[in-house]
Design a binder for these strands. Structure first.
Lengths: 128, 128
DNA sequence: ATTGCAATACGAATTAAATCGTAAACATGA
DNA sequence: TCATGTTTACGATTTAATTCGTATTGCAAT
């Protein structure tokens, strides 16, 4: 069996993964352009981070052409769930409901969005 | 004006804050006992962390007696919201609904919990 | 007072993450 | 070919977080 160890991306790595998940694949340049929309970063820093992610198995890459193409190697949804669950257990004493309350309450969730969640709940209830 | 800078507790610091929030206040010994229920840690390590948290302003402490009493200095709910929001923006492209879906879907949310969230949604809808 | 124990103080080492400079490789077009 | 610009490779440094050993302090029981 491979990859028994859980891969836990760092903050910076998650930002990069987010770009790769959104675009499917990307060059360092493309990722870097995305990142610098929201924060400062040197090009070689982004490059180095992505090379390290390659070492860790977080991404794969196609090196056929000089400009390498990076592809996410871990599943978006699985990673999201893993991180959310960790947060629920450490910050909300294991109560997903408490977390949802914080996420939805006190803010600008639209009627549309609320409707979606309602539907989800109906579906889940039906499965019980 | 004081404290303009946002205090961003580390993982370890959050674990300690969780104990303090749950108990209201606690000694290093008490916190340490709690932590070691779920993980390895040396006593002086916990002590040092809490001392650093004091420096950062994450906690205050009462040093009247030899055994110091630590009190959380940042608000639980505010901190939760801050962290959840950050996660939503970085990991769920800003969609709180997507996050809620991951949190609720694919797992063991009880009927009770679903009911609570339904009620929350009704309340929110009423406010629109 | 002395001993023993539990607690604090604090420097230092370790580990991990992020940043960056510089060199080398490669492609392109003048 | 040569100059230019882009990219990768990679070592080294910096910064942050964590861990731990040891010294010291204070208290209580004898």
């Amino acid at each position: 069996m491979k990859n028994t160890k859980v891969l836990k991306p760092t903050e910076s790595e998650l930002e990069i993964l987010a770009v790769l998940w959104a675009q499917g694949e990307a060059t360092v340049r493309m990722v870097h352009e995305e990142l610098t929309k929201t924060k400062e970063a040197g090009y070689t820093t982004t490059l180095k981070l992505m090379q390290i992610m390659k070492e860790k198995g977080l991404v794969t890459r196609n090196t056929e052409s000089k400009t390498h193409i990076y592809i996410p190697a871990i599943n978006k949804q699985k990673t999201q769930i893993q991180i959310v669950n960790k947060m629920i257990s450490s910050l909300f004493a294991g109560s997903s409901v408490d977390m949802v309350m914080q996420a939805l309450g006190g803010n600008k969730t639209t009627a549309e969005e609320l409707k979606k969640i309602e539907e989800l709940i109906q579906t889940l209830k039906a499965q019980k």
